[in-house]
Design a binder for these strands. Structure first.
Lengths: 227, 227
DNA sequence: AACATGCAAGAGCAGTGCTCTCGTTGTGGC
DNA sequence: GCCACAACGAGAGCACTGCTCTTGCATGTT
């Protein structure tokens, strides 16, 4: 291993360490984490952190990318361990919810209100689509195997807008089912966020998982996965 | 009018003025608005603001209550101007979305990630339920007039948890339809938040209203409003 | 007239993101 | 092996933040 590689590795380790401490701080401070506090925990001057992240926003971006990948991977692994498309759908949804419950502030970072003045760079959009693409792939599997019968095609201008992108990203799926995947994705994120952010105040306390699955099945039914 | 009442009125006006300026700042600074900047805009010292709001959190709470009431009133007025329950449903949804588009930061304040360390006081939970109750009332109207046929009752523990609260808040509605109202509420909030927070990146740009209505109708269909 | 109350201003404290400068240290090219 | 250079960490400093405390002023009450 060359010296340059060694230096790069040390730098990568330091970067990871900063992110790790920042994630810990995220759990207590939320989105307004203090770069200085992170630096203090690492025993270094705050200005030294700027050698690794040009700004607080850049550190947040790194955390955002990690969070998208973490929830995406959790959902993908859960789906991979399931059998039928419907089972994959449910497993992916529950996995996303459980990841959100275990890392609420990281969930808030990606699905909550964007931090003011923060503009998501291009690096985030690919990881951001992992869960959506997983839902689309699950629908594709059901559709190509004939389990899922696509209903009448979409009407409306938004369908025309959606068609070319749908064809390039999920080529084997009718536009209608792509729209349903997006709608389901939004619905799932909405249900998780609502639970996490305290919207279902005290109406359901014990069996929140059951209520979530009710909504999850509703989304699946709307897409035609369940009749 | 007694002097005490006059003073109270002046105080109320001042309070409203602070909130108005704070809302303007919300549009640029987002949730981390600066009390000092608000005070500067009002031409007074930052410490003077503390005569009206004990802390920044308290000012935020006031803005949150106002926001819940604003979106609730927008939805209620739109529904009041519509005819059938289905039309009311669609009108309320579109009104909520349009309010969110016109006041995105206020939407983020109530439906985005909660500000760190902030605990919503009791004063917020009643205004927070206005839109949900409107959806429930719309379903009630359809249900009692026989337009809507409730499907098989809910199963699962969450249904048992939900039943007593449902009976006290929406007594004329089966628990299943209460659950559907909540699910629809979450779905609508999720769809609006997703659009507002940039989740549908460039997939739909022109006819976002149409795609939103597609989701709105999906929620209505799930509740049985549309077959 | 004397007192009390509500209000606003200013100074001050601890904390923040970020920049700049200054030594140090390790690395690659000759 | 040496030397220039780039990377690095530390510290000071700037402008800003939320919040507190004290002081002065104007008003209303007794």
């Amino acid at each position: 291993m060359s010296a340059a590689n060694l230096r790069a590795r040390v730098r990568a380790e330091m970067t990871e360490e900063i992110k790790a401490v920042a994630k810990r701080h995220l759990a207590t401070d939320g989105a307004n984490l203090s770069l200085r506090a992170v630096a203090r925990d690492l025993g270094m001057a705050s200005s030294a952190v700027y050698r690794y992240f040009a700004s607080r926003d850049e550190l947040l971006t790194a955390l955002i990318i990690d969070a998208y990948n973490a929830v995406g991977e959790a959902a993908e692994q859960a789906a991979a361990g399931a059998g039928t498309p419907t089972e994959k759908w449910l497993a992916a949804g529950h996995a996303a919810r459980e990841w959100a419950l275990s890392s609420p502030h990281e969930w808030a970072l990606i699905y909550g209100s964007p931090v003011p003045g923060y503009q998501a760079p291009q690096d985030t959009i690919v990881p951001a689509t992992r869960v959506l693409l997983l839902l689309g792939a699950t629908l594709t599997e059901a559709y190509t195997s004939g389990v899922l019968v696509s209903r009448e095609p979409l009407t409306g201008r938004f369908a025309e807008e959606l068609a070319p992108i749908a064809a390039s990203v999920l080529p084997d799926l009718p536009t209608r089912l792509v729209a349903d995947a997006i709608a389901a994705y939004f619905q799932i994120c909405g249900a998780i966020s609502a639970e996490l952010f305290g919207q279902l105040n005290k109406s359901v306390e014990e069996d929140r998982r059951g209520f979530f699955e009710y909504q999850l099945r509703g989304a699946a039914r709307h897409a035609g996965l369940i009749r």
